[in-house]
Simulated scan of single mutants.
Amino acid sequence: MRALTWQGTAKVSVETVPDPKIQEPTDAIVRMTSTAICGSDLHLYNVLGMYIDKGDVLGHEPMGIVEEVGAEVTHIRPGDRVVIPFNISCGHCWMCTRGYFAQCETTQVTDQHKGASLFGFTKLYGQVPGGQAEYLRVPQAQFGPIKVPDGHPDERYLFLSDVLTTSWQAAKFADIAPGSTVAVTGLGPIGQMSARIARHLGAERVIAVDSVPERLAMARRNGIEVIDDGAVDDVPAAILDMTAGRGADSVIEAVGMEAHGSPWQGAAVKAAGLLPDPLARKATETMGIDRMAALRTAFAGVRRAGTVSIIGVYGGNADPFPMMDLFDKGVTLRMGQAHVKRWVDDIMPLLTGDDDPLGVDDLVTHRMPLEDAPRGYEIFEKKQDGCIKVVLKP
Rank of each mutant, 00 (worst) to 15 (best):
R2T: 02
R2I: 10
L4G: 07
L4N: 06
K11F: 12
V12Q: 12
D19H: 07
E24L: 06
A28P: 02
R31M: 09
R31L: 02
H43C: 03
H43T: 01
L48Q: 05
Y51T: 10
D56K: 01
V57C: 11
M63D: 13
G64E: 13
I76Y: 00
I88E: 10
H92N: 11
T97V: 15
Y100E: 13
Y100K: 05
A102M: 02
C104G: 06
C104F: 07
E105T: 12
Q108A: 15
Q108V: 02
H113A: 15
L118R: 13
F121A: 10
F121R: 08
Y125Q: 07
P129A: 06
E134V: 04
Y135P: 00
A141K: 01
A141E: 02
F143Q: 04
P145T: 08
I146Q: 08
V148A: 09
E155N: 13
E155H: 11
Y157T: 05
Y157F: 14
F159M: 13
L164S: 04
T166H: 14
S167R: 07
Q169G: 04
A174P: 00
T181F: 03
V184T: 04
V184F: 09
G186P: 12
G188T: 01
Q192P: 00
I197H: 09
I197S: 12
H200K: 09
A203C: 11
R205F: 02
A208C: 01
E214A: 14
R215M: 02
L216G: 05
M218V: 01
A219P: 07
R221V: 13
G223N: 09
E225H: 00
D229I: 04
D234E: 08
P236L: 13
L240F: 06
A244P: 00
G247A: 14
A248E: 09
M257S: 15
E258D: 13
A259K: 00
S262W: 04
V269C: 01
A271T: 08
A272S: 09
L274V: 00
P276K: 01
P278D: 11
L279D: 06
E285T: 08
E285K: 04
M287G: 02
M292H: 02
L295S: 15
T297C: 14
G306Q: 04
V308N: 15
V308A: 15
Y314A: 11
M324Y: 11
D328E: 14
V331A: 14
T332S: 11
L333E: 12
G336T: 08
G336P: 05
M348G: 04
L350P: 11
T352F: 10
G353H: 06
L358S: 14
L363E: 11
M368D: 02
A373V: 03
I379N: 03
I379W: 05
F380C: 01
F380E: 06
K393V: 10
P394D: 13
